[in-house]
Amino acid sequence: MPGWLEVVVRGVLFLFVLFLTTKILGKKQLSELSFFEYVSGITIGSIAAEVMMGLENNIWHGIIGVAIFAVLPFLVEILSLHSKTIRDVVEGKGTVLIKDGKILEDNLKKEKYTTDELLQLLRGRDVFKVDEVEYAVLEADGKLSVLLKKDNRPLTRKDLDLPSINEKEPHTIIMDGEIFDEKLASSGKSRGWLKMELAKQNVTIENVFLGQVDSSGQLTIDLYDDKIEVPKPQDKLLILANMKKCQADLELFALATESEQAKRLYAENAKRLQESMDVLSPHLKG
């Protein structure tokens, strides 16, 4: 076999072997979270490259080498699933670098991190002032996890005392102009509904690049033709606007009428509408 042909054969073979190994080891290998995954990732790669290009090497030795670095971490992973002690040794533990807002210099030294490196890691997490951090851990894979002080955390609905809203995940039902019936079914909609919604927005299915439906049943689409402006779904806002208008009308009627009884009826209904509006507005605005 000429040399170039052997390189081709070995290349294809090892690509296949590597693909198989990573499939078996799973997503965890790709994340390179622990020491074992990091080392085995590098080694498997270099064994494959070495055997592929160095034609004097035996191809089976290369495959055995790859297999060792695939099987051993696999076994260790299974063991570490069952025992916390093994897990701590193999995968390592996080080191607390900042506690109660204070940098722990001893731990920093133990991990051989300089102040500059700590600041760099913090900046990577969008923190430019150490003062903003309450607690920070250097994880086993070298990433820094940061807990900000309560004052510096982003505002949430809970902070504002807004009622809780449970939003389900959106479903992608159209991709490249094709309808995905399975997704359509899991979002609880039918093709008929989709046809109607598209007609409402005045587009054909062939022109839709991507279509998603959210949990409240609103369809948002992106078209191939970017010159066409797609109207944003406004059903909910329209309902809210109508409610506001009606509420104002009712109050106006209450002021205008001379009959006591009618005045009471209008005022009472205006109040009821206002209450209903208060309940609905967080949902309708979203």
Partner: peptide, 22 residues
């Protein structure tokens, strides 16, 4: 008439939404 349209709109929202509490 506006009240009726609000009622119809809410009814359609109730039918089309997936979240049960909503």
């Amino acid at each position: 008439a506006t009240i009726k349209s609000i009622e119809a709109g809410l009814s359609s929202l109730a039918i089309h939404t997936n979240a049960e509490d909503e």
